[in-house]
Computed example of a mutant assay.
Amino acid sequence: MNPSQLAYLIIVSSTLFVCYLFGLKRPFLRKLTISLFLVLQVVYLLWRLVYTLPTMGWMSLFAGLALLLTEWAGFFQNSVTSLLFWKKSKRQSVPLSALKEYPEVDVFIATYNESVDLLRRTIVATQLMDYPKEKMTIFVCDDGRREDVRRLCEELNVEHMTRPDNKLAKAGNLNHAISHSSGEIIVTMDADMVPRSHLLKETLGYFADEKTGFVQAPQAFYNEDSFQYNLFAGDRINN
């Protein structure tokens, strides 16, 4: 790296860092930071296109173009993310009382080969959600068609649902469950989720608006991710 390239790198990094620090509370500087970030990415990609593609042979050129296309794909992904952060969203919470009456809720827990112990935690936590029990039905959508899962569902008094095949995997599993649902609201969860007790109280109120068809809540998982598993750190590092 020659001195001019090093100076450019230092100036660009310093500018973005300063804009970031001051842009945390100033919308104008936040938008300036995002704009500079995208413009500088375009400058870099144009430099890559004009000056860095290998010309030693068609194989090297092909590999260079493949890498460049990957970088352009990353740029477009960054552009979408930047668009999402362009303007802060301050959505007002809507209480459950906004609804005229409590809707019937069907909760789908999709599973294929997760352990029974893991499923038990998810089912019990779902049962402890703060909502009238007569208005909520829990379905364990078991694409593994396992006898031990069926016994678990009987023990915990929840519905065990299977289908004759695994067509379209998880999407097909949920679509099959939807075709047998009579609930006004459907809540879908993975087998390794533990819902907070106030999940329904915090989300169902948005359906008081007839234009609302889908509500997404933040998600966190309690099973070990690949880093925890490979580092044998599941009991020391939170997911």
Rank of each mutant, 00 (worst) to 15 (best):
S4C: 05
L9H: 14
I10V: 15
S13A: 14
L21V: 12
L29C: 05
R30K: 15
L36G: 03
V39G: 11
R48S: 13
R48G: 09
Y51F: 15
T52H: 11
A63G: 13
A63P: 07
A63T: 10
L65D: 05
A66E: 13
L68E: 02
T70M: 03
A73G: 04
G74Y: 08
F76I: 06
V80F: 08
F85L: 08
F85D: 09
K90R: 12
Q92I: 02
S97Y: 02
K100L: 07
V105R: 06
T111C: 01
Y112T: 00
N113A: 07
E114W: 01
L118V: 05
L119M: 04
T122Q: 08
T126N: 00
D130Y: 05
Y131C: 11
K133V: 14
K133N: 12
K135E: 09
I138H: 03
V140W: 00
D142L: 04
D143R: 00
G144C: 08
D148A: 01
R151T: 01
R151V: 11
E155R: 01
H160M: 06
R163L: 00
K170S: 03
K170E: 05
S179G: 08
H180Y: 02
S181C: 13
S181E: 04
S181G: 08
V187A: 03
T188P: 05
R196L: 15
G205H: 09
F207V: 09
F207Q: 00
A208L: 06
K211P: 07
V215T: 00
P218N: 09
E224W: 04
A233I: 05
D235S: 12
R236M: 06
N239Y: 06
N239H: 11
